[in-house]
């Protein structure tokens, strides 16, 4: 009984949904502020100290806006997709080892489940675009799937090389195998670079914000969404950012591990996890500031000509070393 109650608290409060929600809004703020500072701008400023509440303010504003379903849209799918999008992202965060070496959910081989659900998120983007039947949204949805063909394989292979070097497909074991040396410091450095680039594509950020390319197809697959549904998508995107930064920290930077004071393990583990995932976030933000957007065919060329061979080499190196 107590065990079940504890599990529920873990899921809802810490390190579950409430904590994740706050953290993901914080990460959006860090992303925006850092991006702005790289460009010599201010960034969010007014809501809260240094604009730290701006993502929350945006979210609340979107919730209060009118929610329109276009006449030609598939109403069921149109309504279902944002909910699923948000829910799957939130579910996946439960796998992240935030305050210990295991996440809230953990079982043998959970990395495969994790990666499979990540792919479903991209499929949901396609559904969202197609359900709204707008021309821009349709083009955006097509681009999302095309892009998926490009980045999915190197993304998986970069994870595979980590899995090989720790000889396990369980997140818990991967974390524990890094207690002496982080993966990024070993032969997996190449895999980390590929992971960072493909994470940009997964998150649809510059240079791979092709499906929602603001300048070309307005907002791509998001164009018809408004009000609460858009708010869910936005929050879902934030959670996805946290998810991928957390995954990067877990796989390459040793997750929550580090020197701790006995008795305060939870606090220290959480702190380490947050710091490490913020480092990954800053790397991703830097990538975002450095490039122009690629065209979708160029993106495919990039990933099949360079990323996939590179990730295969990375797997090979790791296989030889370990």
């Amino acid at each position: 009984m107590i065990e079940a109650l504890y599990k529920i608290i873990e899921m809802i409060l810490f390190p579950g949904f409430a904590f994740i929600g706050v953290l993901s809004l914080l990460y959006e703020w860090i992303d925006r502020k850092f991006y702005a500072r790289l460009q010599n701008r201010i960034g969010p400023l007014y809501a809260g100290p240094h604009g730290i509440l701006q993502p929350l303010a945006d979210f609340i504003k979107l919730l209060s806006k009118e929610d329109i379903i276009p006449e030609g849209a598939d109403k069921f799918l149109f309504t279902l997709t944002p909910i699923l999008f948000f829910a799957i992202n939130l579910l996946l965060t439960l796998f992240l080892p935030i305050c210990g070496t295991t996440g809230v959910i953990s079982f043998t081989g959970d990395l495969i489940f994790f990666v499979a659900l990540l792919t479903i998120i991209s499929i949901l983007v396609y559904t969202a675009g197609m359900a709204s039947t707008n021309r821009f949204a349709t083009i955006g949805a097509e681009r999302a799937v095309l892009q998926l063909i490009g980045y999915e394989i190197p993304f998986m292979l970069s994870i595979v090389s980590v899995a090989i070097s720790s000889r396990s497909l369980t997140i818990k074991n991967i974390v524990e195998s890094q207690s002496s040396i982080w993966h990024i410091l070993g032969p997996n450095f190449l895999a980390f670079i590929i992971f960072a680039i493909t994470a940009q594509a997964e998150l649809e950020r510059i240079p791979f914000d092709i499906p929602e390319a603001e300048q070309e197809i307005v907002a791509g697959w998001l164009v018809e969404y408004s009000g609460k549904k858009l708010a869910l998508f936005r929050l879902g995107k934030d959670v996805e950012t946290l998810l991928l930064c957390g995954l990067g920290a877990t796989l390459f930077l040793g997750g929550p591990l580090g020197p701790v004071v006995p008795g305060l393990e939870i606090v220290f583990y959480t702190l380490y996890f947050i710091i490490k995932s913020i480092i990954v976030l800053l790397v991703l933000t830097t990538l975002r500031a450095l490039f122009a957007r690629l065209r979708v065919d160029q993106m495919l060329v990039l990933s099949w000509k360079y990323l996939i061979p590179l990730s295969l080499i990375s797997v090979l190196i790791v296989r030889v070393v370990f």
Binding site: L38, N40, R41
Partner: peptide, 8 residues
Amino acid sequence: NLLKKRAT
């Protein structure tokens, strides 16, 4: 530019 003062 990160270290510079903002232009705004």
